[in-house]
Design a protein around this nucleic acid. Sequence first.
DNA 1: AGCACGATTAACT
DNA 2: GTTAATCGTGCTC
Length: 208
Amino acid sequence: MTKYTVLPPSFYARPARTVAVDLLGKRLVRLINGRRLSGLIVETEAYCDAAERDLACHGDKANGGRPTPRTAVMFGPAGFAYVYFTYGMHWMFNVVTGEEGQANAVLARALQPEEGGELMAEYRNGRPRREWTNGPAKLAQALAIDKSFNGANLCAADSVMSLWIEDAPPILPEDIASGPRIGLGKTPEPWLSIPWRYWARGNEFVSK
DNA sequence: AGCACGATTAACT
DNA sequence: GTTAATCGTGCTC
């Protein structure tokens, strides 16, 4: 018997919005030298829901909606990591969702720390616990997620995998809030304001 | 070949 | 509230 259940490909192979909501409360786990660093996902954003053109999504914004070297992973099968670099210094961790051939993904924006706090504090330069994982680039830094995880299989428990998501009790629907996605800049409407960001209402680790 | 800008953060005033 | 940091990517010339 296993103590933990790794989320299977079927969990991810659904529309981005569905996965974004269902990921709330799940546990993101990073294994480093046998030590578990983990946190419960408390904030997500959905990009490129199936069959809906989403000009906020890298996969639709670039190259007329065709894959590019950067976005290729988003067009691949669900359950893989899409990790990209932005602002010249930050990594963003997403999970690929939906059907292969379509650019669907969910951005992990915040975690509630569970295990491995000592290492997370170190990776976050000694900042207070509240600031370890309350933002997409912060959680990537806290879990040491970088370019090497782009294209990583989050479901293959038998590989050298050191990153996955475990099942955990869901957040109750009445405790889930939603609103417009953050940082979309010049993205046109309706995508700029469409409420595809979801978070655990009242959780102190939700990004500012 | 050159350029504008980003699914952000931290350190300012 | 404002802004520097910092560089890969995709688009234009």
